[in-house]
């Protein structure tokens, strides 16, 4: 699902956001990304959303190297990742309903679909009776639940929560943690970046990636890249004299896969509506 292959992001001469980070996240996993402030958690998220591009290495999302995602396709890539921020980032001039509906409007969904989806999401986050309130009328926990509902609006396969409980009390934090767990159980890959002890205790069973000064110092359940296995098979075949292939052919064989993925992304572009 998400692969970091020796990824580094250098900001200045000796300042790294992340440094030589490699890991594999499978679909449906619940991941905790931990580490102190400035350890690179947010940079990691920005690399996945392609707000940052790696200085070295490659980030692969759903078998598609992000370096192959053209700027014109970036919005489509971002619609596949729900992002929850520590400071919620709700639009202050829009009410709860409008905030949750925003990604659906962006994705060009019909009003019936928006109505149905927003209703379901507000039920999920238990805010169906507060749909008319504006962000400044909500508590921190409620605002964060709206933010989660908004992140889930277009049913992204991945949800990235960046310090989701950073501004919340323990009770609200627990509610958010339970909500994230529930979302994960429904099949969404959930990545939670945090250094909140409450979260760490409540999600102790989850796989944990720990960052320190931009380097990955701990992966509690390291996974191998599935693509790697395929590559190994190819390597094995290469060893057999009859099936030996030239590197050029190998590149050619791999190339269509990336091309197909880019085409998939292009196909997922909303089609222009015909005249009614």
């Amino acid at each position: 699902m998400i692969v970091f292959d020796k990824v580094s992001k250098q900001f200045f001469n000796d300042t790294y956001g992340v440094k030589d980070v490699s890991f594999v996240i499978d679909s449906g996993e619940l991941i905790l990304i931990t580490g102190p402030t400035g350890s690179g958690k947010t940079t990691l998220m920005r690399l996945v959303t392609k707000e940052h591009t790696p200085t070295e290495g490659e980030v692969i999302f759903d078998d598609l190297p992000l370096s192959k995602v053209k700027p014109s396709l970036l919005p489509l890539h971002r619609r596949r990742i729900g992002v929850v921020f520590q400071d919620y980032r709700l639009l202050p001039e829009s009410n709860v309903w409008e905030n949750v509906a925003l990604p659906l409007l962006i994705a060009g969904k019909s009003s019936d679909e928006i109505e149905e989806r927003v209703t379901d999401l507000l039920k999920l986050v238990k805010l169906e009776d507060k749909f008319e309130l504006f962000p400044n009328e909500l508590s921190g926990g409620e605002a964060q639940r709206v933010s989660i509902a908004r992140a889930l609006a277009v049913a992204p396969p991945v949800l990235f929560a960046d310090e989701p409980t950073g501004n919340l009390d323990k009770e609200s934090s627990l509610a958010i943690i339970n909500l994230l767990k529930k979302i994960n159980q429904l099949g969404t890959t959930v990545l939670v970046s945090t250094h909140d002890v409450v979260v760490l205790e409540e999600m102790a069973a989850a796989r944990r990636l720990e960052l320190k000064n931009g380097e990955l110092v701990l992966d509690t359940q390291p996974k191998k890249r599935r693509v790697k296995k395929k590559e190994e098979e190819i390597e094995k075949k290469k060893d057999k004299p009859k099936q030996k292939k030239t590197p050029a052919k190998k590149v050619k064989k791999d190339a269509p896969k990336t091309k197909e993925k880019v085409e998939d992304l292009e196909e997922s572009k909303p089609k222009k509506k015909g005249k009614k």
Binding site: P75, R79, R89, P103, I106
Partner: peptide, 14 residues
């Protein structure tokens, strides 16, 4: 500005 950043994160086209 912040709203524009949020929309960009949510995958809004240019």
């Amino acid at each position: 500005k912040k709203a524009i950043q949020v929309m960009s994160f949510l995958g809004a086209s240019s």
